[in-house]
Computed example of a mutant assay.
Amino acid sequence: MAITPIKELVDAAKAEITSLSQEEAETKVAAGEALFVDIRDPRELEREGRIAGAFHAPRGMLEFWIAPDSPYHKEALATDKTLILFCASAWRSALSVKALQDMGVENIAEMEGGFSTWKKRGAPIETA
């Protein structure tokens, strides 16, 4: 059995999810319509910085933190706001948005380009 190449999985996920441009995402968050959810590893946040106000939900805990019946549920993620997920380069976030959609989460999107593009375009970041 051959393993599906990761790029194919990401492309398939992106075909079924909402991807917002960096500017669209930033505008929705600024308007109070959305919440940035940073799914990067804690070491990435320490090394690269973070977007101010973004909720940190490590990829490995995301489904557990979203599910209301989970003992690990985080109330901050139980919101009517659109959850805009991002990682470093929008691969993990695409797969994560697809997984959450499959769970029944409707108010969900990802930010194109991820944190690396955010940083490259000079958008504001916080460093430790």
Results as ranks from 00 to 15, higher is better:
residue 49 G to E: 02
residue 82 T to E: 14
residue 87 C to Y: 00
residue 107 N to M: 06
residue 9 L to H: 02
residue 7 K to L: 13
residue 55 F to H: 15
residue 34 A to F: 03
residue 30 A to R: 14
residue 93 S to H: 02
residue 101 Q to M: 13
residue 8 E to Q: 13
residue 27 T to E: 15
residue 55 F to N: 11
residue 92 R to S: 10
residue 83 L to I: 09
residue 71 P to T: 09
residue 71 P to H: 06
residue 56 H to P: 15
residue 87 C to S: 10
residue 34 A to I: 04
residue 39 I to G: 06
residue 79 T to D: 02
residue 53 G to P: 08
residue 71 P to S: 08
residue 4 T to M: 11
residue 7 K to A: 15
residue 96 S to K: 02
residue 97 V to C: 10
residue 86 F to W: 03
residue 6 I to A: 09
residue 86 F to G: 06
residue 89 S to F: 07
residue 40 R to W: 00
residue 96 S to W: 01
residue 15 A to Y: 01
residue 39 I to A: 04
residue 64 F to V: 07
residue 86 F to C: 08
residue 94 A to I: 04
residue 94 A to P: 08
residue 107 N to Q: 13
residue 53 G to D: 03
residue 89 S to C: 09
residue 82 T to S: 08
residue 49 G to Y: 02
residue 47 R to E: 14
residue 5 P to K: 09
residue 84 I to R: 01
residue 3 I to E: 15
residue 18 T to G: 00
residue 63 E to A: 14
residue 54 A to F: 06
residue 10 V to I: 15
residue 67 A to H: 13
residue 78 A to Y: 09
residue 23 E to P: 05
residue 70 S to V: 10
residue 8 E to K: 10
residue 21 S to T: 15
residue 65 W to T: 09
residue 41 D to T: 08
residue 17 I to G: 01
residue 91 W to L: 09
residue 73 H to S: 11
residue 39 I to K: 02
residue 59 R to I: 14
residue 4 T to L: 11
residue 85 L to E: 00
residue 12 A to G: 09
residue 86 F to L: 08
residue 61 M to C: 08
residue 19 S to W: 00
residue 46 E to D: 14
residue 64 F to H: 11
residue 61 M to K: 11
residue 44 E to F: 03
residue 43 R to Q: 15
residue 29 V to M: 01
residue 102 D to Q: 13
residue 44 E to Y: 04
residue 41 D to M: 06
residue 58 P to Q: 10
residue 111 M to E: 03
residue 72 Y to F: 15
residue 10 V to Y: 00
residue 15 A to W: 01
residue 27 T to W: 03
residue 66 I to N: 06
residue 80 D to T: 13
residue 104 G to A: 08
residue 22 Q to D: 11
residue 15 A to L: 03
residue 79 T to N: 05
residue 14 K to S: 01
residue 5 P to W: 05
residue 85 L to M: 08
residue 30 A to T: 10
residue 103 M to V: 04
residue 29 V to E: 01
residue 7 K to G: 06
residue 95 L to Q: 04
residue 106 E to Y: 03
residue 101 Q to W: 07
residue 35 L to V: 11
residue 88 A to Q: 14
residue 51 I to F: 02
residue 42 P to H: 04
residue 5 P to L: 10
residue 65 W to C: 07
residue 66 I to R: 06
residue 79 T to A: 06
residue 52 A to L: 12
residue 51 I to N: 01
residue 84 I to Y: 00
residue 22 Q to H: 09
residue 84 I to T: 05
residue 7 K to W: 08
residue 31 A to N: 12
residue 86 F to R: 00
residue 105 V to G: 06
residue 44 E to M: 07
residue 56 H to F: 10
residue 9 L to N: 08
residue 102 D to T: 12
residue 36 F to H: 05
residue 55 F to R: 13
residue 55 F to Y: 15
residue 89 S to R: 11
residue 56 H to I: 11
residue 12 A to L: 07
residue 74 K to F: 10
residue 7 K to T: 12
residue 74 K to D: 15
residue 89 S to E: 14
residue 56 H to W: 09
residue 89 S to G: 15
residue 41 D to N: 14
residue 41 D to I: 02
residue 3 I to H: 10
residue 59 R to M: 14
residue 84 I to P: 01
residue 75 E to F: 10
residue 100 L to T: 05
residue 106 E to R: 12
residue 103 M to D: 01
residue 67 A to K: 14
